[in-house]
């Protein structure tokens, strides 16, 4: 009888502790624990942040950061066997797919702004870039006003296409704005003369132009549609415990020498698939963003004094 009682208390205690453990976990962490998998959203052609290499495997700066985050999540959940699932996203689908739980982390080149923070959350900024346009040197376009009356492409679902349509309306330019599915497709429109210019974050334009058949044929505008805006890895809104793990992991990475090492790997060394070297060493703003990690959507917060 006594033994049965003891057994009973032990079972009860066991049940209680597991329940207490389960109660601590909510949201994404709970989901990752329950399913044993975390889903990363990747991009087709956001070079060098998240894109497909020669074997059509997603790689890039943001992908490396995300794998570090996954390591931190594994540690947090004390489970080494968490499986990483990869799900393709486009600029147009990424926000709904974060919101509806299809992907847990979106690793790419997503601009962190106040508008989007109403829908999703961002972890610490991993890059800063301004919105400019690329065009063929031969077409001699360098100011935004030069685009007047022309066909200009941008990627649908980006802040850039929004800035372009806003500038188009505000300055009365009469630009024919063509939305493309992804950056590679948009750049191709310029390469094949279907559009005179492609409006995008300048770092992406630089890598697309560098990867073109004749890189010297392209020029990126001095004129910018925006200040240098922060990129962040996207996660679901109102999920503080998960965000805490992700924020801590990224902050630790960015502040450590490893952060700079990963940066150099993608921005100052040869990258797959074609062995390009983008040659963009860390600027003062980028150094500051890494030294004091922040998820602020405000471009001014990153200005290096």
């Amino acid at each position: 009888m006594k033994r049965i009682f003891l057994l009973g208390t032990m079972i009860a205690a066991a049940v209680c502790t597991t329940q207490a453990g389960a109660q601590e976990l909510t949201g994404t962490l709970k989901k990752i624990k329950d399913t044993g998998a975390i889903t990363i959203g990747f991009r087709d052609s956001s070079v060098p942040f998240s894109y497909l290499d020669d074997n059509q495997k997603p790689v890039g700066f943001a992908m490396d950061i995300c794998y570090k985050i996954v390591d931190a999540v594994k540690k947090e959940l004390k489970n080494d066997k968490i499986e990483v699932k990869l799900n393709p996203v486009t600029s147009a689908t990424r926000i709904p797919l974060i919101a509806n739980g299809t992907v847990d982390l979106e690793c790419g080149s997503t601009t962190n702004n106040a508008d989007r923070q109403k829908q999703v959350a961002f972890t610490n900024t991993h890059f800063l870039t301004a919105s400019r346009f690329v065009s063929k040197k031969a077409s001699k376009l360098d100011k935004i006003d030069d685009l007047k009356g022309k066909s200009v492409v941008s990627t649908s679902g980006t802040t850039n296409i929004k800035q372009l349509t806003e500038a188009n309306a505000a300055r009365n330019l009469g630009i024919n704005v063509i939305p493309a599915k992804d950056h590679a497709e948009a750049f191709l429109m310029v390469e094949t003369d279907r559009a005179v210019a492609f409006v995008m974050d300048d770092i992406l334009l630089a890598s697309l132009a560098a990867g073109a058949r004749d890189p010297s044929a392209y020029v990126i505008s001095k004129d910018a549609f925006s200040k240098a805006e922060p990129y962040g890895i996207m996660l679901r809104k109102d999920d503080a415990p998960f965000k805490k793990v992700v924020d801590a992991a990224t902050a630790e990475l960015y502040k450590s020498p490893e952060g700079a090492k990963i940066y150099d790997k993608w921005f100052t060394q040869k990258i797959p698939p074609k062995g390009l070297n983008l040659n963009v060493p860390m600027g003062a703003e980028q150094k500051k963003a890494f030294a004091s990690p922040s998820d602020s959507p405000d471009p001014d917060a990153y200005a290096a004094n």
């Binding site: 147009a92 709904p96 109403k118 829908q119 492409v153 649908s156 679902g157 939305p179 493309a180």
Partner: peptide
């Protein structure tokens, strides 16, 4: 919409992108 024609589905898609009201 895949070749850039702004027809009804493309408009709905771009509305979703800007307003987030999928």
């Amino acid at each position: 919409l895949t070749i850039g024609v702004l027809e009804l589905t493309a408009r709905a898609r771009s509305m979703q992108e800007f307003s987030f009201q999928v």
